[in-house]
Simulated assay, not measured.
Amino acid sequence: MSMLIPGQNQLAEPEMVKVEQFEALLAEFKAFVVEYVAARSPENAAKLEVSLQNESELLTMALEAFTVRLQTHERKYNARIKQMLAWWANGSNLDARLADMGLERQIITPGDPAAFPPVLPVMESDDDARLRYYLAPHAPAAGSRMQYRREVLTLGERPRVSVETTVAGIVTVTYTFNPDGFAAQVKDGNGRRTAPGQVTVTVLSREGDGTPSAALLGAVRSHFDRPDVKPETDQVLVQAAQIVNYKIRAIAYINPGPDSALTETVAAAQLQAYAKACHRLEGRVDRTWIDYTLHAAGAIQLEVLEPLAPIVTTAAQAPFCTAVEIEVRTL
């Protein structure tokens, strides 16, 4: 059975948020108006039908304006409907969906409210929180890839469970949560069977180029030492992700004009966002996406200097962009 995972799969919008085409909606309104008038005055309805075929008639323009207004109204409410669906929800709307699973958005950096000016906390991104939302209700088979990934990404979110029976007929179940918050430092992780009975867990950090600290690796090892996390037959080895460094360098050619600085700023920002999205285990950096981004930013012609070939990483590796250098020239 396959599973939809945000960031890896695309999901089409549901039919309930589709907006009817302008021409079809306008034709429906015209037919309704003519039918409504015909029930009261067939003679006037015939005249009205002819009048509505004329684009310059005030009533025709009024119906067109009403159609546009209705489409805008539908888009506004459709946007609200999508915020009720975890796949598209963001901000506080996504926080509400996380609460359905007993989860809350992780605090990456606590901030300092006593500072002047106050330093706001850095919170987990919508994409990362959404991924944990979709992993939360699943109970993958013990020892499966999905189970290991869930354990790494929810590190510290799951309580330590102990069961005791000190009195006949009474069973006490205690849930103890990890207060250290190491899960917020994990950007990506997985588990792969590297030998019979041996699983290697790879950890990618949010800090710097993704290399996890010794403290974070120690927390991951402690987590997998628990008796309720992995099969007893698995020997778990924890390792840091191998970072594959690369640069994005390109020359973008645009038509003469005053917008070269704007093109450079937009292109650099979009490429930084693309590089950030690729900073995952088994991440892939493709030249076609770089081409697309530069053209979307306004480039007419372009010359990509780095990377010259796609960067493909393994389950133990993650690509990291050390610099984005865009030079804009006019044709």
Rank of each mutant, 00 (worst) to 15 (best):
A39M: 07
F22V: 01
A62E: 08
V19N: 13
E35T: 08
V37M: 04
V33W: 13
K18S: 11
L48N: 11
L25W: 03
Q53G: 12
L58W: 07
F22A: 14
L26Q: 09
L25H: 12
F29Y: 06
V17W: 02
S41H: 05
F32S: 13
V37S: 06
V17K: 06
V34P: 05
E55V: 12
P14W: 02
S41E: 15
Q21I: 00
V33Y: 13
A46K: 03
S56N: 10
Y36M: 09
M61C: 11
E15H: 02
A45R: 06
L58P: 02
T60C: 14
V37K: 05
F29H: 04
F29V: 05
V50Y: 14
S41L: 01
A38D: 13
L48Y: 14
A38F: 04
A27F: 10
K47T: 11
A46C: 04
F29E: 03
L52S: 09
N54C: 00
E20M: 10
S51H: 09
E64W: 07
E57D: 15
K18R: 15
E43S: 05
F22E: 10
A46T: 02
L52H: 06
L26M: 02
R40I: 08
E15Y: 04
A38H: 07
M16I: 14
A38W: 00
A46H: 06
A62K: 09
L63V: 03
E43M: 06
N54S: 08
L26D: 04
V37P: 01
E49H: 11
L63S: 08
L26F: 02
M16N: 11
E55K: 01
A38S: 15
V37T: 06
V50C: 01
M61H: 09
N54K: 15
E57T: 10
S41R: 08
L52C: 12
A27Y: 06
